[in-house]
Amino acid sequence: MGKQYAILRVQKCKGAEIGAMQYHNDREPGKHTNPDIDRTRTRLNREMCPHADYEGEIQARIDAGYKGARKVRKDAVRLVEGIVTASPEFFEGASAEEVRDFFEDALGFCREEFGESNLVHFTV
């Protein structure tokens, strides 16, 4: 087997993108633009850091923590989305327990690196 890699991708998100992100991440019913979504496997998704409403939770955090004199700009970055995965070779040879452990470790890394209170949602 060749080299295997852990992968972490991050992306800034502004206000208008947040609702669409939740729609996509939660696999809510409707038309999704990603053709790779296999709806028959959605039931296998597992929320490891549950949430209710991205926009509401994020706005509440901004309201509670922002101490600036100016109003927050409409086009301000509201959150950073992260995707944690591994090279395909890892998943091809991994047992269900190894995959579960990988994502438990990934969640632990995110909690330590970004702070538990800064995580809005984490799902596998």
Rank of each mutant, 00 (worst) to 15 (best):
Leu119Lys: 07
Ser117Pro: 09
Asn45Val: 00
Arg111Gln: 14
Ala86Val: 05
Cys49Pro: 03
His32Asp: 00
Val77Pro: 01
Gln11Arg: 12
Arg39Tyr: 14
Ile18Tyr: 02
Pro88Gly: 08
Ala86Asn: 08
Glu112Arg: 11
Asp101Val: 07
Phe91Ser: 05
Thr42Cys: 13
Leu107Ser: 13
Glu28Asp: 05
Gly30Gln: 05
Ser87Pro: 04
Asp53Gln: 10
Thr33Pro: 02
Val120Thr: 01
Ala64Tyr: 04
Asp75Gly: 05
Glu92Ile: 05
Ala16Asn: 14
Asp38Gly: 03
Gly108Asn: 14
Ala69Ile: 03
Asp101Ser: 13
Glu89Leu: 08
Gly15Ala: 11
Arg46Asn: 08
Glu81Pro: 05
Val99Phe: 01
Phe114Met: 12
Ala94Tyr: 10
Gly2Arg: 07
Tyr23Gly: 04
Gly93Cys: 07
Ile37Ser: 05
Glu55Ser: 11
Arg39Glu: 13
Gly30Val: 00
Val72Arg: 12
Glu81Asp: 13
Cys49Ile: 05
Gly93Glu: 06
Pro29Val: 00
Ala69Gly: 09
Phe122Arg: 06
Phe91Ala: 01
Gly108Lys: 12
Lys12Tyr: 11
Ile18Trp: 06
Phe122Pro: 02
Asp63Val: 00
Met48Gln: 07
Phe102Glu: 03
Asp101Phe: 10
Lys12Leu: 12
Ile83Met: 14
Gly15Gln: 05
Asp105Cys: 09
Glu112Asn: 15
Tyr23Arg: 02
Arg43Lys: 15
Arg70Phe: 10
Phe109His: 10
Val99Pro: 01
Val10Ser: 13
His121Ile: 00
Asp105Ile: 02
Cys13Gln: 13
Ala86Ser: 09
Ala96Leu: 01
Phe91Arg: 03
Ala96Gly: 08
Asp26Val: 00
Val10Thr: 14
Gln11Leu: 02
Val124Ala: 08
Phe91Gly: 02
Ala96Lys: 12
Arg70Trp: 08
Ala6Val: 04
Lys74His: 09
Ile7Val: 15
Ala86Thr: 02
Pro50Asp: 06
Arg43Leu: 01
Thr42Gln: 04
Ala60Glu: 01
Tyr54Glu: 00
Thr42Ala: 07
His24Asn: 07
Glu57Lys: 03
His121Ala: 05
Val99Leu: 01
His51Phe: 14
Glu97Lys: 11
Glu47Ile: 00
Arg39Ala: 11
Gly30Cys: 03
Arg78Cys: 09
Glu55Met: 08
Leu44His: 12
Met21Leu: 15
Thr33Trp: 15
Phe122Ser: 04
Ala76Pro: 12
Asp101Gln: 15
Met21Asn: 15
Ala20Ser: 10
Lys71Tyr: 09
